[in-house]
């Protein structure tokens, strides 16, 4: 009951959106739309998981879209130019992602620089790296990489989506059931209290950024797989989509509070908006106006949810 309550507001919002688009469009409420929508979001899902942890420790990671592009470029170059197999290429991409993330974390911690500016730097560096390794051109990989995003017969869902759901579940368990997750929440709530308690927050912080990078690398696999290509221009603006999804899900930008599952609902809200608006054939300005309003309204609604929760505690 308690769990249901904490998700109720978001779920009602989600259902309202679905109802609206089902009413406005002929084919929105169909299994075809649902399946294509779910198979589009795995990359955003796993990146939102990483971003949830980053926001919880009161950080921010602006580099996720560029790191995704770099990692997907690495997959393309490894498979096409070096003749690597998919598995080794993906392993390298995950490693590249994790290294970018770890660098973000180490620099943020070592010199006590706001992660905003460190990851802004990484946004440029990783994007430059993506252009560098691909020679600025899209690499078409084809069938060798497409399997991960190809729907499994009968089920309709892709392995990518299933992996992403597992990442969400594991992410939520790590956050709420492990000491590491508790430390992350405590660091976000008050880092000095954590330090006075004799716990070193540094390794947790570096770990969180490395996780965000690693998941961007995983997102790169999903992305390259869905499009059959490595695109150095991939993921431009993805960081803002991820932050919007996470914040819609009620994770605080100030840290100390958040939920991975709620971020997933945030991702669904963003994806449904995008698909729904495209299906009703909304004009470009309308799309942007509505998306913007929905983000702001969802966050305002969350403020009331938190206030109500606070009152009932007293």
């Amino acid at each position: 009951m308690k769990i249901l309550k904490s998700y109720a507001g978001l779920l009602v919002f989600l259902l309202l959106l679905i109802a609206f688009f089902s009413f406005k469009s002929q084919h929105f409420f169909s299994s075809g739309t649902l399946v294509s929508l779910l198979n589009q979001i795995p990359a955003l899902m796993v990146i939102a998981v990483g971003m949830t942890f980053v926001l919880i420790i009161a950080g921010i990671d602006l580099s996720v879209g560029s790191v995704l592009a770099l990692a997907s470029s690495v997959i393309g170059v490894a498979m096409l130019d070096w003749g690597w197999g998919l598995l080794t290429a993906v392993a390298l991409a995950l490693l590249v992602g994790a290294i970018c993330g770890a660098l973000n974390g180490v620099i943020t911690v070592k010199w006590a620089i706001p992660s905003f500016i460190v990851t802004l730097g990484m946004l440029e560096i990783a994007r430059g790296g993506a252009y560098l390794v691909t020679g600025s051109s899209t690499k078409y990989i084809g069938a060798a990489v497409e399997g991960v995003a190809t729907p499994i017969g009968g089920l309709g869902l892709s392995p990518a989506f299933i992996i992403a759901v597992l990442v969400v579940i594991v992410g939520q368990l790590v956050l709420s059931k492990t000491i590491w997750g508790r430390y992350a929440l405590a660091i976000g709530a008050s880092e000095s209290v954590v330090v006075y308690s004799g716990i070193n927050p540094r390794s947790v912080k570096v770990g969180v950024f490395a996780l965000s990078g690693l998941l961007s690398g995983l997102g790169a696999l999903f992305y390259a797989s869905r499009l059959g290509s490595a695109d150095p221009n991939a993921g431009i603006g993805l960081e803002l989509q991820a932050i919007a999804a996470v914040v819609i899900g009620g994770t605080s930008l100030m840290g100390g509070r958040g939920s991975v599952v709620r971020s997933f609902i945030g991702v669904l809200i963003i994806a449904i908006l995008e698909t729904g608006l495209a299906q009703i054939g909304a004009s470009e300005p309308t799309k942007r106006l509505i998306t913007g309003f929905v983000i702001v309204i969802a966050v305002i609604a969350d403020v009331y949810r938190v206030r109500l929760a606070g009152k009932s505690k007293n």
Partner: peptide, 25 residues
């Protein structure tokens, strides 16, 4: 039946095209 912008981008076009295909059988 539909004409929408995908901002020259591959991934955006993928989503818009998916929506167009779902809507216009």
């Amino acid at each position: 039946v539909s004409s929408q912008s995908a901002q020259w981008e591959m991934e955006k076009a993928n989503r818009i095209a998916s929506a167009m295909i779902s809507e216009n059988v």
